[in-house]
């Protein structure tokens, strides 16, 4: 279980998170939603230790992770569009991360699954944006981690790879993995997420299941329900 308690974070004068608390149950997929600049990425980065909260604690299975690094063995992270080192090949990059984590990942299986076997020996600067994103996806999935964090995962992926990615995520969830996801594509949320947290101006506006949200506002799509929610808060 992952537990956020009263997370505060400001960058200079800008208060990005103003006391965010919620739990994510094991084996669930949590979608973190909110407009641009609402603090989604900051929240995700604070689980990873990339951002250090000013106040508050984050627990993964009872362990306070702030200032630690070993817990990241259990995390597979897919950042928003990443620029990778230019002059090393795909297979070298995958092996490098494997070497750093000191675990053997299921590279072969994922490479076949996403169909990039032909690119393995190409250097990263010669790859197209979509192929690079597939490499990133593989990097996040290859270690059989117990927590996956996807920051806008399908940006740049072609429709077929998108479908494959989502199938894979559902499969991982069935295997008891916890998933945290941010996205602007609401159909993705409906397909994957069990719970959503809607953040705006650094505070939680809604925490619950997507169906619950739709029921609350008596709408049949998540999009309309969110729009209605925002209107009532204005």
């Amino acid at each position: 279980m992952i537990k956020f308690t009263d997370i505060h974070k400001s960058f200079g004068k800008l208060q990005v998170l103003k006391g965010v608390s919620f739990d994510i149950q094991k084996g669930q997929c949590m979608a973190i939603l909110g407009p641009n600049g609402s603090g989604k990425s900051t929240l995700i980065k604070s689980i990873l230790g990339l951002v250090i909260p000013d106040k508050g604690e984050i627990f993964i299975d009872e362990n306070n992770i702030i200032g630690q690094s070993d817990y990241r063995n259990e995390i597979g992270y897919l950042p928003q569009i990443t620029k990778l080192p230019e002059n090393i090949s795909v297979i070298e990059l995958l092996k490098m991360i494997q070497d750093i984590r000191k675990t053997t990942g299921n590279i072969d299986e994922l490479v076949t699954y996403f169909g990039i076997a032909n690119y393995l020996n190409k250097t990263l600067k010669t790859l197209s944006g979509g192929t690079r994103q597939k490499v990133n996806v593989i990097l996040s999935l290859m270690f059989n981690a117990s927590l996956y964090i996807f920051d806008e995962p399908t940006v740049g992926l072609d429709p077929i790879s998108c479908v494959k990615f989502k199938q894979r995520v559902l499969q991982e969830k069935q295997n008891g993995k916890t998933v945290i996801l941010t996205t602007h594509i609401l159909s993705e949320v409906e397909e994957l997420a069990d719970q959503i947290v809607f953040i705006m101006d650094g505070q939680i506006y809604y925490h619950g299941s997507p169906d619950q949200l739709k029921n609350n506002y008596q709408e049949n799509t998540l999009e309309k329900a969110i729009a209605k929610m925002l209107e009532t808060y204005k």
């Binding site: 990873l48 990241r72 620029k83 230019e86």
Partner: peptide, 14 residues
């Protein structure tokens, strides 16, 4: 140039 890759490395257990 390696700014984003650094993020990826920092999210590893090191």
């Amino acid at each position: 140039n390696s700014r984003e890759f650094i993020d990826l490395l920092l999210s590893q257990p090191i």
